[in-house]
Write a protein that binds this DNA or RNA. Structure first.
Lengths: 251, 251
DNA sequence: ACCTGAACACCGTTCAAGT
DNA sequence: ACCTGAACACCGTTCAAGT
């Protein structure tokens, strides 16, 4: 419905199954501010989205929540846990965004949609790269997503082991693409401070400048690289993986 | 030849094509210590391997090099650059370890070997997850590896675009698997402080404890998960990807 | 050209104290 | 039960000074 392509926010996840601390105590709170796990994590994600990994600071987060630094530790025991929960929060958004899937004829097509939705949530969020599927305890949504993908594969004629391997492969691929941002246009280009054309021709020039005997392939794909679209490239790789899976399942 | 499966070290890379600063000035150096880009990066990798990301500190690195903190900035302009170079250094090791490849009949089999060697270098190095292929300028070995994989695909009947997409997919997959460590045994198990069996049965128990209607797939693969081998799982996913590629290339 | 180390600004985490 | 903020230990980075 909304047309924000910057960090499309279906971030708000489904019910956190985790023991929630910090209920709805609203009454009689006067000058002391009152948070909740949800507020802490949501604001953390917002901070991350606005300013990248460096912007998430306990002090900045506390200021944003209108409280003291120490309070955050009531909800979260370390920065690592905070980042894990932030990543899981994003995955929660993916879950709700894909809640309608799972009825389709073709299980592999469903997996494709799930993976694409996952990918969409990671674009413009370079910060969550390494934080998916860290600790099973704090990342229910991660487990849930894993399960949803796997459920589709249960409709295919595969062994449990093959199913596990396939789900793991799809997840790894998505996370890998998310982590790989960097061959891409640098920030000054994405911001529009430098025109794309300029970046592209500069990039092409720098490839041409390299020894073509040392880097024959880079020369070979210089034009393609300059013109490629990230999302398309993601789908191309995903489709290779899924084609292999389809083959394995005998269709 | 060596049988260290802990961080198998073919780390020492081929000629750094990068402008080297800090030549071999050895004479007349008295109490001032003298470094080199190579020493700085090698020791950084060592620190990282021994103690993880948290262990790499400018102060610790300086102490190890026997010098002052400031000196490091002569070779490297930030911690980010240091980590990029460290990642590239590891990839350099992969390049030398696979120097013999490229003559084989089947290009796809060669790609498979390259990917497996890449994977082997990332196991036990959770720290390099996000640092591959960041800045083309400082990561020659990354470009070189990319090119080597691509070169194999030039022997297949594909369009340049398809080749680019395939190489990117393979790289993303490897990086993704590397980043995904975490469903795996936690450190206290890898260290041997807690026996593997105990972890495995505990894990299985925790899956059984979950609602089987909410997580049918997790129940389905609980046994497989407990028994799976990471390297095998990596190869299984890689083979799906390569099967798709083989199909696309018409064999 | 390269190294030193004190100094700076900032960070995650702790904790005695408050309500 | 939850919040506060000063205090602590430590970090990346800078820079005037040395050789």
């Amino acid at each position: 419905m909304t047309t924000d392509d910057e960090v499309s926010d279906a971030s708000r996840g489904p019910a956190d199954l985790v023991r929630r601390r910090g209920g709805g105590r609203k009454s009689s709170g006067r000058q002391r501010s009152s948070h909740s796990l949800d507020a802490v994590v949501s604001e953390a994600v917002a901070l991350l989205d606005e300013g990248g990994e460096a912007a998430l600071t306990f002090r900045a987060l506390a200021a944003r929540l209108g409280g003291g630094v120490g309070s955050i530790y009531w909800y979260v025991s370390s920065k690592d846990e905070l980042l894990e929960r932030a990543a899981d929060h994003v995955l929660g958004g993916v879950l709700t965004a894909t809640a309608h899937l799972g009825q389709g004829e073709d299980p592999i097509a469903e997996v494709r949609e799930l993976a694409i939705a996952f990918y969409a949530a990671t674009v413009n969020r370079p910060w969550l790269g390494a934080y998916f599927l860290q600790d099973t305890g704090t990342q229910v949504n991660g487990l849930m997503f894993f399960d949803r993908v796997g459920r589709e594969l249960m409709r295919l004629d595969l062994t449990p082991r093959q199913r596990l391997d396939a789900v793991s492969a799809v997840m790894a691929y998505v996370v890998g693409v998310a982590a790989d941002r960097g061959q891409d246009p640098p920030p000054e280009v994405r911001d529009g401070r430098v025109p794309v054309d300029e970046f592209v021709s500069e990039f092409r020039a720098s490839i041409r400048a390299m020894d073509s005997r040392a880097f024959p392939f880079l020369h070979h794909i210089a034009d393609e690289f300059a013109a490629h679209d990230d999302a398309e490239q993601f789908r191309a790789g995903l489709d290779l993986l899924l084609a292999g899976l389809r083959l394995q399942s005998g269709r």
